[in-house]
Write a protein that binds this DNA or RNA. Structure first.
Length: 686
RNA sequence: GGCGGGGUAGCUCAGGUGGUUAGAGCGUCGGAUUCAUAACCCGGAGGCCACGGGUUCAACUCCCGUCCCCGCUACCA
C-alpha cells in the first residue's frame, strides 16, 4: 500500500469522537480530541481545502436509559440536556464543527438502518439464538444492568448482571443467584431471543493488510500497537443487536423490542451528520465518504482505538462502498493535578464551568491543552501550570511583543506603518527566519504533531522580541528616525504574520490582533508571502491580548476542585442499607479474630494474596484480593477479623477457607477491620 | 499473567538508520536593559537518557532480563 502522506487529496472529512450524552465535556476530552481536531481543520480551511468537520452527540445505549430511570425522566430528556450543554460549550469555546448533530436525529436512524440492512442483505451477518432474561410483567428483555441478584463470589445481594460492585467481579446475568428485574422487582425468566453478529474474524486478513502493512509508518505508535495487539489476539464475532427499546430499531421483520447495539450505530453518526450538513448546505454528501480522493481522519482518545480502527472499518468494508480512514490520531489521557480525571468522583474541569469562570479566555485553555497535549503518553494538567503558561508565555512572549510594537508605532509614527529604508543584515536575517516558521508549522500539523506546531508559532513571537531588543529603536529614535522606521516596519510584519499563523491555535486572539492591525481576511499562504502591511497603512490603538491571571483565581479553582471531591465523597460512598436480615441469619456467621502468620502474592495475578492465618482453633489458608493495597512482607503478625465458616472456594488453584473482613475507603483503598490488638486469636465477634 | 504505550534536566516534553561536549520551553541563579502587562534580551548552573547484563571500536539509541506508571485483556475478593 502507498503511504498517503505524500498524496494530494481533493477533500477532507474530519471527525471528532462523538461525546456520550450522559455528561458534560471536560478538559480531558478537549486536550485529546477537540482542540487538536479543531486546529487541524482551521488550518485546512486556511489552505482553502474542501473540508467537512463532523461531530455530534452519541445518545443511545443502556447507561443513558439507566440515568433516565434514576432521575425519573425519559432517555430523550437526558440526552436533550447534555446535547444542549455540550453543543453550546463547544461553540463558545470555538470548536468550529461544520455540524454538531446527534444520533437521536431521524436522519441518523435512517442512515444506520440502511447500512445495517445493506450488510444484512448481503448475508454477512450471522444469526444466532441465545437465552436471555426477560421480565414478563414489563414484557421486555433485560439489559445486564437491569438485573440484580446475589453475587456468587462474595454474596453481595445487590450485584448487577454485568458486574458485582462490591467485589468487582465481572459477571454474566445467569451467574447471579436469585436474579431480580430492576424494572418490576420480579424474578425474570430465561427466554430465547435472536441476535445478529458481525463476523470480525472474517476480516482479519484485510485488517492485517490495511493496518499492519499499509499504515506501519504513518499511524501513531500507540494506535498501531493497540491494533496489532487486537488483531494478533484474534477477533471474535460481535453482536450488533440487542434487546432494548432505546436506540435504532432493527430494520428487519418481526424484531420488536430490538435495537442496534450502540457501538454499531454511534460511528455511523459521522455519516448521518455529514448527510445532514450536506442537506443544509445543498451539496452532495457522498464524495465525503465514498471517494478515493477524500482523506478521512478520525480524532479520538485511546479508549476508542478499537472501535475506529477495527470495528467501524469492518462495518464499512462489509457495506462495501465507503472509504476507510487515512489516519486515526488517537491521543493518550490527560490527568488533573496528578490524579486521573473521573466523572463519578467529580475530579474534572468541566468546559461549561471554565467558560463561566474565565470568560473570554478560551485561547488560554486552548493553548495550555495543546502545548501540553497527551500525544505520546498521559500528561498532567495543573492550575499552577495553567497560570504559568498564561503569564510567562502567552502574555510575556506573545502579548508583550505585540504590545511593544504597537505602542512604539503609535508613539513614534501615530499608528501608521512607516516606510522602511534599506534593510540591514539583521533585518534580512530576521525576515529569513520568519519565513521558515510557517513551513515548520505546516509540516508538524500534517503529521498531527500539535505541540511542536504551537511551539513553532510561539517561536515567531520570540523571534520578534529578540529582534526588537537587539535593535533598540527607543535608543536611536532621536539620532536616526529612518532606522527606527525600518525596525518598526519589520516588527509590524512579524505581528501580522503572527496573526495569520496563530489563527488555527488561538482563533479569538488572532481575530483580535487582526482587527487591531486592520488586517483584512487572510489565508495560510499569506504567512509565507512577503509583507502583509504596507507603508502608510494605519493601525488601531493597542489593546492587551492577554491579561495576567492572579494567584487568587488559581486558588479558587483548586478550592472548587477539592470541595467538589469532598462533597462527592460523602454523597457517593455511603451505600444504601441492605435488606433487613434476622438475628438467626446473623448468628449463622462465624466471625472471629485471627493473626496473619505469613503472606505471599499469588503468582500470575494482580490482586490476590495467599495468607496463612492462626485462628486460635486452627491454621488455615485464605486467599484475599488485597495485593494491590498491601505488601506481603508487611502482613505477618497483622491482627485481622475473619469470616471463618464461609464455604471453601478454590481460587487460582488454592483452596481458600474464609474471608478477611475489609472496608473500602472513599479513596478506593482497602482497610483491615480491626478488633483491637489486645485480643487473642479465635475470639468470636457478635 | 498476556499484549500495547511510556519511563531523558526541578517541571512539561523533544530526540536518535548506534558515532565528537544529550536538546527545547518553563522554573532557578547571575548579567544587561527600560519601548513593554516587573515583561523582553544575554549568560550560567542543573541529566550514570529507570535499573542490570549482552552485542560493538563505540549504546541514551540495538538485544535479553528486572522494576515503575498508563491502557486493553485475563483472573479475582
Amino acid at each position: 500500500m502507498t503511504n498517503n502522506k505524500t498524496k494530494e487529496f481533493k477533500r477532507y472529512t474530519v471527525t471528532s469522537a462523538l461525546p456520550y450524552a450522559n455528561g458534560p465535556i471536560h478538559i480531558g476530552h478537549l486536550a485529546g480530541v477537540y482542540v487538536p481536531s479543531d486546529i487541524y481543520v482551521r488550518y485546512l480551511r486556511m489552505k482553502q481545502k474542501d473540508v467537512a468537520f463532523i461531530c455530534g452527540s452519541d445518545e443511545h445505549g443502556v447507561p443513558i436509559t439507566i440515568k433516565a430511570r434514576q432521575e425519573g425522566i425519559t432517555p430523550q430528556q437526558v440526552v436533550d440536556k447534555y446535547h444542549k450543554i455540550n453543543k453550546e460549550a463547544f461553540k463558545n469555546f470555538g470548536i468550529s464543527f461544520d455540524i454538531y448533530s446527534r444520533t437521536s436525529a431521524p436522519i441518523h436512524h435512517e442512515t444506520a438502518s440502511q447500512i445495517f440492512r445493506a450488510i444484512y442483505d448481503k448475508g454477512i451477518l450471522a444469526e444466532s439464538d441465545s437465552e436471555q432474561y426477560y421480565d414478563e410483567k414489563e414484557q421486555q428483555f433485560l439489559a445486564d444492568r437491569y438485573i440484580t441478584g446475589t453475587c456468587p463470589h462474595c454474596n453481595n445481594e445487590k450485584a448487577y448482571g454485568d458486574q458485582c460492585e462490591s467485589c468487582g467481579t465481572s459477571l454474566s446475568p445467569t451467574d447471579l443467584i436469585n436474579p431480580k428485574s430492576v424494572l418490576s422487582g420480579n424474578k425474570p425468566v430465561l427466554k430465547k431471543t435472536k441476535h445478529w453478529y458481525l463476523p470480525l474474524d472474517k476480516y482479519e486478513e484485510k485488517l492485517r493488510k490495511w493496518i499492519l502493512e499499509g499504515h506501519k509508518n504513518d499511524w501513531k505508535t500507540n494506535v498501531y500497537g493497540q491494533c496489532k495487539s487486537w488483531i494478533d489476539m484474534g477477533l471474535q464475532p460481535r453482536a450488533v443487536t440487542r434487546d432494548l427499546d432505546w436506540g435504532v430499531k432493527v430494520p428487519v421483520e418481526n424484531t420488536e423490542g430490538k435495537v442496534l447495539y450502540v457501538w454499531f450505530d454511534a460511528p455511523i453518526g459521522y455519516i448521518s451528520a455529514t448527510r445532514e450538513w450536506a442537506q443544509e448546505k445543498g451539496t452532495d454528501w457522498m464524495p465525503y465518504w465514498k471517494s478515493d480522493e477524500t482523506k478521512l481522519v478520525h480524532f479520538i482518545g485511546k479508549d476508542n482505538i478499537v472501535f475506529h480502527c477495527i470495528i467501524f472499518p469492518v462495518i464499512l468494508m462489509a457495506e462495501g462502498s465507503y472509504i476507510l480512514p487515512d489516519n486515526v490520531p488517537g491521543n493518550e489521557f490527560l490527568n488533573l493535578e496528578g490524579d486521573k480525571i473521573s466523572t463519578s468522583r467529580n475530579w474534572a474541569v468541566w468546559l461549561h464551568e471554565y467558560l463561566n469562570d474565565f470568560p473570554q479566555k478560551q485561547d488560554v485553555l486552548r493553548y495550555v491543552l495543546c502545548v501540553n497535549a497527551p500525544e505520546t503518553k498521559d500528561n498532567d494538567f495543573s492550575w499552577k501550570d495553567f497560570q504559568a503558561r498564561n503569564n510567562n508565555e502567552l502574555l510575556a512572549i506573545f502579548g508583550n511583543f505585540v504590545n511593544r510594537t504597537l505602542v512604539l508605532t503609535h508613539k513614534y509614527f501615530n499608528g501608521n506603518v512607516p516606510k522602511p529604508a534599506d534593510f540591514t543584515k539583521e533585518d534580512n536575517d530576521a525576515l529569513a527566519k520568519l519565513s521558515e516558521i510557517p513551513e515548520k508549522i505546516e509540516a508538524a500539523l500534517e503529521n498531527y504533531k500539535f505541540r511542536e506546531a504551537i511551539n513553532e508559532m510561539m517561536n515567531m513571537a520570540r523571534l520578534g522580541n529578540k529582534y526588537l531588543t537587539d535593535q533598540e529603536p527607543w535608543k536611536i529614535f532621536k539620532e536616526d528616525e529612518e532606522r527606527v522606521k525600518t525596525i518598526l516596519y519589520v516588527s509590524l510584519q512579524i505581528c501580522a504574520k503572527l496573526a495569520v499563523v496563530s489563527t488555527p491555535f488561538l482563533p479569538f486572539t488572532a481575530d483580535k490582533l487582526a482587527k487591531i492591525l486592520n488586517l483584512e481576511s487572510f489565508l495560510w499562504e499569506d504567512s509565507k508571502a512577503g509583507a502583509l502591511l504596507r507603508s502608510g497603512h494605519s493601525i488601531n490603538k493597542p489593546q492587551l491580548l492577554f491579561e495576567k491571571i492572579e494567584d487568587k483565581e488559581i486558588q479558587m479553582q483548586l478550592d472548587k476542585l477539592h470541595k467538589a471531591k469532598e462533597d462527592n465523597k460523602v454523597a457517593n460512598n455511603i451505600q444504601a442499607l441492605k435488606p433487613e436480615i434476622s438475628f438467626e441469619e446473623f448468628q449463622k456467621m462465624d466471625i472471629r479474630t485471627a493473626t496473619v502468620l505469613s503472606a505471599e502474592k499469588v503468582a500470575k495475578t494482580k490482586k490476590l494474596m495467599k495468607l496463612e492465618l492462626d485462628t486460635g482453633i486452627d491454621k488455615r489458608i485464605v486467599v484475599s484480593g488485597i495485593a494491590e493495597h498491601y505488601e506481603a512482607e508487611s502482613l505477618a503478625g497483622k491482627k485481622v477479623v475473619l469470616l471463618a465458616n464461609l464455604k471453601p472456594r478454590t481460587i487460582k488453584g488454592i483452596e481458600s477457607h474464609g474471608m478477611i473482613l475489609m472496608a473500602e475507603g472513599s479513596d478506593g483503598r482497602l482497610h483491615f477491620v480491626s478488633a483491637g490488638n489486645e485480643l487473642e486469636n479465635g475470639f468470636l465477634i457478635s
